[in-house]
Design a protein around this nucleic acid. Structure first.
Lengths: 120, 120
DNA sequence: TTGATGCTTCACATCAATGTGAAGGTCAAC
DNA sequence: GTTGACCTTCACATTGATGTGAAGCATCAA
C-alpha cells in the first residue's frame, strides 16, 4: 500500500511515517515512480511503534528492540552481541519500572474516581 | 531542606527541580534569604514525578493527577469538576494502554533473551 | 486536458524536557 | 575578611517528536 493508506489505517500523519523511516524503524519498498510501498505487516508495526513512543521510549531504543520482536527469531541471532543483550536487559528492566510506576498511579487515580463516584 | 539536598536525595539536577516548580508540580516554601525550602514529603513526590515523566506523561497531565494521589483525599473534592473527572478517566485509560503495550513488549524482549541464553 | 489528490524532498517551526553558563547574593569556616 | 560551597534569576542552546508549508512530479477522474 502507499503512504496515504497506511496513514489512514494507523491514524498517523504521513510526515511521521517518513520520520519513522528516517529513524530506521520501518523500511518500505519503492515503486518505479519513487512512491513508498508498504507491506501489510507494517500496519501493526507502526501501531506498535507509536505505542512504545507514547510510553516514553525514544526511537533509538525502539529500533534496537524491534528486531527481536519479530516472529522468525533465528534471523536475528547475528545481532545478539553481548552489548546488545546488555542493552536489551537494561531496557527490559526499565520497562518493568515504568510498568510499576504507571500501575501504581493508575490504580490511585482509579481509587480516587471510585471514591468520588461513591459520594455522588 | 534546601534544593541541593533534595537534588541529591532524588538524583535530580537542581535545574529540573526549579523547572518542576515552574510547571506547578511542587511548591517549596521560601526562606528569608530567598532560598527554596522543601518539605520531606517532596522527596517521594519528585521521584514519583520523574517516574511518570519517564513513562511518557507530560507535566501538564502530571499536574492534574498529583492532587488526587495524596493521602488525605477530602481536601481535593473541590477539584472534582465533571471535566476534571473526565480528564482523569481519560488519562487512567491511556495509562492502562501504555501498561499493556509496555508489558507485551517487555515480555517479548524477555522471551528473546531467554531463547538466546538457552542456546549459549 | 485539466484539476484534485497524493506523492516526493527540503526546510524551517514548535513544544517539552533538559543542559549550561553568566552574574550575583548568602553563609559557614578558616 | 576572604574563600568556597551553595543559592538566586535570567537566558540562550539542544534534543526528540512533531507540525507545517513550499515546489515539483505522478496518478486519476471528469
Amino acid at each position: 500500500m502507499r503512504i496515504g493508506e497506511l496513514a489512514k489505517l494507523t491514524d498517523t500523519p504521513t510526515r511521521l511515517l517518513r520520520y519513522y523511516e528516517e529513524q530506521g524503524l520501518i523500511e518500505p519498498h519503492r515503486r518505479e515512480n519513487g512512491y513508498r510501498d508498504y507491506d501489510d505487516y507494517l500496519v501493526d508495526r507502526v501501531i506498535q511503534i507509536r505505542g512504545l513512543l507514547d510510553a516514553g521510549l525514544p526511537t533509538r531504543i525502539i529500533k534496537q528492540i524491534l528486531p527481536c520482536l519479530d516472529k522468525p527469531r533465528t534471523i536475528h541471532f547475528a545481532d545478539a552481541t553481548p552489548e546488545m543483550l546488555a542493552t536489551l536487559e537494561r531496557e527490559r528492566d526499565r520497562m518493568t519500572r515504568r510498568i510499576t510506576c504507571l500501575s501504581r498511579n493508575r490504580d490511585a487515580i482509579d481509587d480516587y474516581l471510585r471514591t468520588v463516584r461513591a459520594l455522588a
